[in-house]
């Protein structure tokens, strides 16, 4: 079991310097990513899900970022690595797929060069071998005419094609871990389905682990094996995809699921979560961060220092307030 663990994140917190002071964007994250598994991290904008991904990739400017805790990847703590050591991991053992496939590609470089670049630093292949491998990769990600695409520039491709190129770059060195940050948000649904199928297929073929970051609950339900729900920089609930969707416990998870327009909700009001997500500067130091958004739940129901509670194998929930949580009868919080 433990040898299947690729990435072990322990008590990870990341803070950003804003106007001279550090503010925590993610706090006390504990997560494991295993081989042959897609872990989805889901939450709304500002919840810290992208910060988590970029922290694992070490993409933050060290001058304005502070990370504590451990990010153990294949036995080594990534946070303790210097740039040279990190660059041996990035692109080779961990690949990343970005949200906006147009801006993620250099507009002035041919597709082929952008793919072979990753091999320049991680392989001993000759130029010719690299070019061949680039064509092979383009074929693998489902591009019909690899020769032609290889010679093109990013602006000449459609959104879906560009995202396939990004995936080709990410998997060029057969990484053990793939981090996909909102990989389909900028795409049409039919293309989204194809891209998700492709990520799934690659994950199965390479026996790799995938971290899928998304705000789309439907994507999570259709793609993930494990799910972590994030709110205001913390994980509030974690479990298998069945546990999260069929037996959601944390008030935030349940509220989110309730605000999705459903087939049978046509004539109802959608559930609205009262209040706003606190900004980094306003993040409460203590107590349940979700408490202000469920004001009808008595404060005695919340823990002073909410911790994760193990409920069944793999299913964890933050705070004890879920035990007393019920939706108000008349939807509250239409006015903010």
């Amino acid at each position: 079991m433990s040898d299947q663990t690729l990435l072990n994140i322990k008590n990870l917190s990341t803070s950003f310097k804003i106007e001279g002071e550090f503010y925590e964007a993610i706090s006390q994250i504990n997560l494991q990513v295993k081989r042959d598994q897609i872990l989805a991290i889901v939450g709304e904008s500002g919840c810290g899900k992208s910060t988590l991904a970029t922290t694992v990739m070490g993409l933050h400017d060290p001058a304005i970022t502070k990370s504590t805790g451990q990010v153990v990847f294949e036995g080594q703590d990534l946070l303790k690595m210097n740039e040279v050591q990190y660059n041996k991991i990035r692109g080779a053992k961990i690949g990343m797929i970005f949200q906006d496939p147009l801006s993620a590609l250099n507009p002035l470089k041919k597709i082929k060069d952008q793919i072979t670049e990753v091999m320049d630093y991680h392989t001993q292949l000759t130029e010719k071998q690299k070019s061949e491998r680039a064509l092979e990769l383009l074929q693998d990600v489902g591009i019909d005419n690899p020769q032609r695409t290889a010679r093109q520039f990013p602006h000449e491709l459609s959104g879906g094609m560009r995202q396939r190129v990004i995936i080709a770059i990410a998997i060029a060195c057969k990484p053990d871990l793939l981090i996909a940050d909102e990989p389909t948000t900028a795409l049409d649904v039919t293309i989204q389905a194809q891209i998700l199928d492709l990520i799934r297929k690659i994950q199965q073929e390479n026996h790799s682990g995938v971290i899928l970051i998304t705000h789309d609950l439907g994507v999570v339900a259709q793609t993930a094996d494990e799910v972590a729900v994030m709110y205001a920089g913390q994980i509030v609930e974690q479990g298998t995809v069945q546990q999260i969707f069929e037996n959601p416990l944390h008030p935030y998870t349940r509220s989110l699921l309730r605000s999705v327009p459903q087939a049978d909700s046509e004539n109802d009001e959608l559930y609205v979560i009262a209040g706003n997500v606190p900004s980094l500067q306003q993040m409460p130091k203590d107590g349940d961060r979700f408490a202000p958004r469920i004001p009808w739940v008595p404060s005695s129901a919340h823990e002073k220092h909410p911790t994760m509670h193990q409920l069944s194998a793999g299913h964890q929930v933050r705070c004890t307030c879920y035990q007393n949580f019920n939706f108000p009868v008349a939807p509250k919080g239409v006015r903010q």
Binding site: L59, Y86, G91, G95, M96, V118, Y121, I166
Partner: peptide, 8 residues
């Protein structure tokens, strides 16, 4: 993207 590729 280039950083994520491990480019120095």
């Amino acid at each position: 993207t280039a950083r994520a590729k491990g480019v120095p």
